[in-house]
Design a protein around this nucleic acid. Sequence first.
RNA 1: GCGGGUAUGGUGAAAUUGGUAUACACACUAGAUUUAGGAUCUAGUAUCUUUACAGAUAUGGGGGUUCAAAUCCCUUUACCCGCACCA
Length: 930
Amino acid sequence: MEYNFNKIEKKWQIYWKKKKIFNKKILYKKKKYYILNMFPYPSGEGLHVGHPIGYIASDIYARYKNSQGENVINPIGFDSFGLPTEQYSIQTGIHPNIMTKINIKRYKIQLLRLGISFDWDRELNTSDSTYFKWTQWMFIKMFNSWYDKKLEKARSIKILINEFNFNGNRNINAFSTFKKRFSADEWKKKKNFEKEKILQNYRIAFLSKRSVNWCPKLGTVLANDEIKENLSKRGGYPVYKKRMLQWSLRISAYSERLLNGLNKVNYPDNLKKSQKSWIGKESGIKIFFSLEKNEKIKLEIFTIKPYMLFGVTFIIIPLGSYFLERKKITNIVDKQYINDVKKYLLNFSLKEKEISGIFTGNYVLHPLTKKKIPVYISSFIKDDYNLNSIMCVPAHEIKSYKFAKKFGIKILEVLSIKSSEKIFCINSSFLNGLNLKNSFFFIKKILLNKNFGKKSISFKLKDAVFSRQRYWGEPIPIYYENNIPKTINKLPLLLPYMDLPYMDISHNEINSPLTRAKFWAWDKKNKKIVYTNLINKKTIFPLETNTMPSWAGSSWYYFRYMDPKNKNFFLNKRKENYWKNVDLYVGGIEHATGHLIYARFWHKFLKDYGLVNSEEPFKKIINQGMILVKSAIIYRNKKKKYYISYSLLNLKKKNDFQKINIDIKYIKNKNEVDIEKIKTWRSELNNSKFILDNGKFTCNRILEKMSKSKYNVINPDFIYNKYGADTFRMYEMFLGPLEKSKIWNIKNIDGIYNFLKKFWNFFHKKGKFYVDENYPSKEELEILYKTIKKIKNSLESFSFNIPISEFMIFLNKLIRMKCYKRQILEPITILFSFYAPHISEEIWYKLGKKKSIYFANFPKNNLNSLLEKYFNYPVTFNGKFRFKIKFKKSEPIQKIEKKLLNNEKIILFLKNKKPKKIFIILNKIINIVF
RNA sequence: GCGGGUAUGGUGAAAUUGGUAUACACACUAGAUUUAGGAUCUAGUAUCUUUACAGAUAUGGGGGUUCAAAUCCCUUUACCCGCACCA
């Protein structure tokens, strides 16, 4: 009887859906187990073969846990707001709302075909207003919060305002960028907008100036992802950094907690390392450099290398620094000057690789030598909002060195480096001859004693920018009353419908598409959205035109799965109490920092208000490896915009060309590009000149991860069609260890397909299903139990590739033994169902079972009852294996040794030499050294 | 530049976590079967020496610890991933 996977798979997928086999409820008697895959983004490309690896692995684990009697939820949904959809819409003219629906539908079809035990009743979608209503609600909660350092938690802003009214900010220990002190009277005298300006320094969701990547030619703000070598990937136009007022979330307030929380979770070490370095706690010292013109004004410069202080020959104020907005700095250089500088630097372009900067005309005094040190403004060394200024030691810092060379600044060596361990100070007065450790403590002591500096701990973690100049994101529920941001509490605040193309490329200002919406103003009285032209600033006010970033919705989605349809609240308390948090989170390592930091922050914020009980969202994380594949790269001349065949590219002039990824489906014969077809891909390619080599245009092929942004994805559909989902599932697991990255290769899939056929045929004799009802032999049972044990161990250690080999070995043995016994085959079918649920379900049904195999218990393993009395010792000579000798397991070492010395085979091997020593490791190995 | 990871036959990979290296597959070779095959079955398949028996050498390279190393330590090379380019 033929293995007809099409028929079998369709049949059971319909059955599972109809009977709601995978839908879960709270069962207080059962232990819960929450498995989650990282949120998929439904792009227009559909799934690629890399995505399912995580889904399949977690499904195998979910089915395994379920078979052990745990109440497993394994939900899925879609992170559906975001840039790719918006861009695709601009290109095609299909509204993102519709586009998203189409994409989700397609993803769903692809996912359903995999036979994963997803609980589809819990499906959610971030662009659905029933979901983002709560994202907006949480944003408002953050807006109305400040961080109390005394209690180490977020609290209501009302408490803070109340305190200001009574005592000013004297007694407040808040996490804030506001450093001045004020009294209650001073506070009360302030005007509303002044008050709000101060409060912005405390709020967890707050407004501040942050930089964006601005591409004037495209008239839009670009993501880092859309830029290569400071040119836009689309069109190759220059990109500038521009600062604008944006919403941020004060994640930095949670730095310490985010760091400490890592001790409580089970993440891979490399992931923890990434998070730690991202949070970047450093203890160092803040050194005061006073201004030459006015010694009262001091720059406070943080460093972890104070022992290089004598080598400081210039100071840099980062162009993006908050410091440039402060009054303090306007005393150094006036505001007009800063604006001019900014304009100059912007036009110079903010290519970070290019050395750019400008001298402020000011000097600070070295705290110890009192020498004059010039102050520059630049974004070359490090452009960071949180830094006020940087001390530069060109002798020992590569970038400072380059900068010093260009501007003719003195270079002073202060370290003698003989090897990585032998470093000591030179040219540094009292530090001379000291090693790094000692000089650190010595200079720290002196600086602190003389009040030239203070102890300081810094975190690298920055506040997260929360505004996007995009249409397709959650609207920020804020309107502006006389420039004061006010919250909209009637939620959800829906996106206005906009005709396409709503993003007019001819705009020269940085604007969000919503600034062009006709129906985007807030009627305060009637609490509703009205036409933009009705704004009168009395009752009708402008609405916020930025939208939220796509990580907003994905920062708390795992909670919503616990209670996806709740209309009254984001999560019912009783449900939260049962499901708590995620037990196993499966996803790519690329989310190690961004998403995981944001989600952990968001979780902690909700915990501060008692809305959830746990401190961490994810108890355990495993990362699946990436799929690597050969991408296709073509080269575009940066200035003249023509494309050149890779075969003609002069490698010396490589820097004149921008690398562009093109879709691998336009490649024929290894590396030849189909010019006619590729011109239809992108309009800019259609209008460009291609320089051919002998009538051919070739591209460069490089190994990269499979990703839609690299246009190298391979769609799994043709694999399901040819081999079926069960083969595909097994094959993806057979590729190798889950966490390892692997080069995509379809070559070995026939082996898996043959194996499934073999498995199927094993149950069918001459076209009829057949099992033997006799009791199995000891040998047969032993093989079964050993296999169960091995598979269990492998699953426990998340080694999903190993059980497949075990299945093969097991089946080969049964075939050799002609064993078709029910008591052997039933347990193995249960194990098999984790990997290949459809074929197993069909066989289970043929075995006469009435209930789905999903409800079968994990098979018992009675191996101990069968264990043999003897152990077959491998005998090695000087570590080299020769043969085996059997001894009783209980035989003591002394007796074994005696027997070994009289053994003929061993005597023969020793050739009359006397063994120096014999190592006997009980029930493991014998090593004879001679 | 910094941080993280990987390396075992022609290929994907196993190795009870320091104890018989290359299980299980793919591919290849030979044979059987079928009208034929991309189907099925059997045997062989790390490298070198050897007709064979057998022996030697092999886990990216070099060194070390150990009775014993793919596994631990030092060093080095290549490739992949990430980045807020630590100043």
